[in-house]
Each structure stands twice: as structure tokens, then as C-alpha cells.
Write a protein that binds this DNA or RNA. Sequence first.
DNA 1: TGGAGGCATTGACGCAGATCAAAGCGCCGG
DNA 2: CCGGCGCTTTGATCTGCGTCAATGCCTCCA
Lengths: 257, 257
Amino acid sequence: MSLASGDHEAHGVPEDRPATPRDALAATPWLRSVSQNVLDDLAGHAVLHRLPGGSIVFEQSETPAFAQFLIGGSVELLGVRGRDESFVELIRPVDLLLPAAVLNCQPYLLRARVLGEASLLMVQAESFRQAVTSDHAFCLAVLGCQAAQFRRRVKQVKNLGLRSAEERVGCYLVRLTGSVPPGTPVHLPMEKRLIASELGMTRETFSRSLGAMARHGIRVEGDLVTLDDAASARTRFALDPLIDGAEDFHPLQAKGA
Amino acid sequence: MSLASGDHEAHGVPEDRPATPRDALAATPWLRSVSQNVLDDLAGHAVLHRLPGGSIVFEQSETPAFAQFLIGGSVELLGVRGRDESFVELIRPVDLLLPAAVLNCQPYLLRARVLGEASLLMVQAESFRQAVTSDHAFCLAVLGCQAAQFRRRVKQVKNLGLRSAEERVGCYLVRLTGSVPPGTPVHLPMEKRLIASELGMTRETFSRSLGAMARHGIRVEGDLVTLDDAASARTRFALDPLIDGAEDFHPLQAKGA
DNA sequence: TGGAGGCATTGACGCAGATCAAAGCGCCGG
DNA sequence: CCGGCGCTTTGATCTGCGTCAATGCCTCCA
């Protein structure tokens, strides 16, 4: 249920980034039930890569050469038309970048751009497909990963279609402050402009909405959020688990026939 | 590349609806490479159902009891909040209704409502999951189905985010008339209000946009569309395969390890 | 044949949110 | 200590599209 970006090793313990492709795969929760030799094989056709903020991981209409596992940092997916970009989704670790395109050998429908800094595990597309078609457990893992992504998208669409800009902001903040006792200040997990695009609005609208939150018991100063009147806030901005709930990977175990 | 709804047996040959669950599975293109006995097993835990227009197939937040295969007709998926509904997607045969929820045993995020009339094959959820976890070929088929759905959703989002209402209408009509020689009148494949919600706008806006099409070489009279000036129309409303292209199921064959 | 209900059209109007523009305000490098 | 750059804030303005309402048109059925 964390709203945090994958990108703070600023204070405290530096995230222990895996040193090798094999380590990265071993550290991926949703590959837990995949056999060692399949992971070995994948790792054998993979490289670990680190990209600075702003890098393009792939471009719209490219044919995938790799299956990209996002290991650290975060990546935004954007629809592009000429000069215009429209934000579609923010991917956080550990997840696959548009597995559908890789599986189907079809062109990417979106541009992927790194925020902050990201570590990617790049597995050769053909080896990835190979593994999916030859190993049932891996196939199930990918299926589960895709299912979670799909549900996240649906939630995003519902959030956009069913709530006003101000409500989206309110619910976001209520959720953000939900895990600490009311009154405790909480940091926004990323730059405001990024939160704004994740919530499907411009920075200006986001900024104004933050101001308006005061009227409902949420105080925002800089990147610090305090829930002054929890009752009021939670009434005005009622969370809906079918929109605001976290969407976790759900394990499916292979069984013999 | 058809825009047609799944719902015209009005003129010509009546669609041959499968008589038994087993027939329905056999007739599903994307299950072609699944072995007979798996299909037999699924059919053994399934019923074929026919629902009149307006029926609710399932309600938001229900836990799936069945995996629903849409065999004929079409079904709309809607996000619901209180009294409001927001259209999310139109499903056409043959496809699964929200497989992610079924796989993960998680509540549906959307309401499913029948348009016109629909035939559904309802497979017991547990048998469906059983088949996915025990049969690799079936697992691959479901993965492919989900991948196609995912890409359709992304295209939809791009269409909405990157084009104005009028452009969406224009592109829709250009695509609709694309398969016949310019000048030939074409029928709209469904009621205007449905096209409008598929294009993410109100009927009124859709209606006005249809009127505006005349300025770009597309004449609309009733439900008949004629492309008068193909060059002008296709320039103003340039199709983008990454938005307007059909998204078909892409087969992945199981291979031994 | 007439009227009721569903859909489409048309016009007037309003508004949420985008856009444009101009300051503030850190933060960093020199 | 200064200047520039990127982010944020704030205000003014614009506009696409939704909403509301009136009307017309079909189809179905009594």
C-alpha cells in the first residue's frame, strides 16, 4: 500500500541493488516459484543496465528487442503524437515494461522514459518468449504480473473518469496520510509535477487543489502534508478500495495436470 | 480490422451459435492450440447462457464465480460510483470478461452489462484457474488474450488523451469507410449513443461532430456514412496504426523445455 | 391511427480544467 | 555572494465539452 516512489536512497540505507542479472531475478518477488535453471537461462541472456533520469528506454513503435524488468527507480509511459505527450502510467519496481508488446513481437504503443535514475534488467526478447513458452511456472508468473498491471490501469481509468481533479488530489492525500496517526506530517513521495501527471492533471491545477485541501482538513506546506481534521477529510474524500486499493501481484502456483 | 459489433444476424445468414459449451470452446480461435481433454474438462464445468439486453453480467466488487467467455453479442464494462457510471470498455466476441479478476480471485472492478443480446460461456472459476495452473497451452492462450486486451486499453487511452472529440469521430469514420472504395455509403455498425461512449463523449457532442464532418469531406445522413473527399478526410484525420490498428490475438505455442 | 417511449438533433449555457504569463523560491556552481 | 535554472505558485483568461432543455423522428403496440 505504499505510495512512495522507488527512488529514495537519499537518506538512510542505500538500496542494495543486485550486482548481477541472476541476483536481480532472484530478488524479484513474483518469480519466486520459477525454477532455478529457468532463471539461470534468462540471466544468461540478460544485462543489467542503469539509466540516468530523462533517458528514453524505448520509443513508441519500436519492436522490442528486450524484455525490460524495472529493478529500481521508476519509469513513465507516455503516448506520443508528434510534439504532444500524454502520460499513461508510472511503473515502479519490480515490474515488466509493457510485457504484451514483447510477448506478441508487436511494436510498443508507448514511449518509456526514466525518472530520476533507474536500473533495468534487459532480457533478450527471444529468450524471454522462449522461457514463457517452455516453462509453465514462468508463464504463470508473467500472467500474474500482467493481470496486476491490467487492474492497475482499470483503477487509474476509474479514478480519472469518476472523480474530479480536486477529489483525486484529496483521495491521494488521504491515502498518503492513512498509514500514520492523524496530525503527523508526511512527505510527498515525489516531485509535485509527477504526482500531478499521475493524477491526470496539470501542475497548476494540482497546485491549486493542494491549496483547496485546507478547507477539508488537510494542510499542505511545501512537500509536507498534515491531516488536521481526519474526520472531515475522510468524509469528503472517501477512499474506494476498488480505486485506491493497492494492486499486488497474486501468486498462482503451477500444478501437475 | 472490423469495427462491426458482434450483433447482426439481422440480414443474411444467422450466426451459428454453438449449441453446447464444448462447441463454444472448439469455436474459439485463440483456444486452437489447447488440447482436447483440457477443453473437455472446462466444458464439463461450464454452462452456456444467453442474456437479453440490459442484463447485468456481474456487478462491481463481486468475487468472480465464473470465467465468462463472451461468445456472441457485446458487453460494456463500466466503472460505477454511487449513481454515476463511466464507460470503460466494450467487449466483443470471442473474449474473456476481466480475466484478471478471475485469475486472482479478486473482486471485479467494473460492472458488466449486456448490449443487445449476448451469449456467454460460463466456466466455473475454480475449474478455469485449475486449467490455467495445470495446462501450459491454456495458460499461454489466456496470457495472449490478456495481452491483446491490455493493448486495446492502451490504444483507447491514447485515443482519448491525444485527440480531440472531433478528431476521434473523424478517425473513427475514416477507419470505418477505409475498407470500401471512396464514395460508397457505409452503415454505422451500432447505435450512435454506443459509438459515442466508445469514443468517450456524450451523444450530443458526437452528434455535433458528425455534422462538422461535412467540412472535411465526410457526409453523414442517418446511419449512412459517405466519404466524399477521401484525400481531405484522410489528411485531416490521419490514422495512426498505434491507435487505430486492430489488436488481434497473437498465438504463442507451447514448446517443451 | 394515435400516442408513448427511445433515440437523435439542435441550441443556449456553464464550468472544470487547460493555457498563458509573471513572479517567487529554492538549489547549485562559480 | 551572485546569477541562472528548474520547480512551484498565483492570477487572468480561454475553451472544449458536458449539461439542460426543447423538438423532431422513428418504431412498436394497443
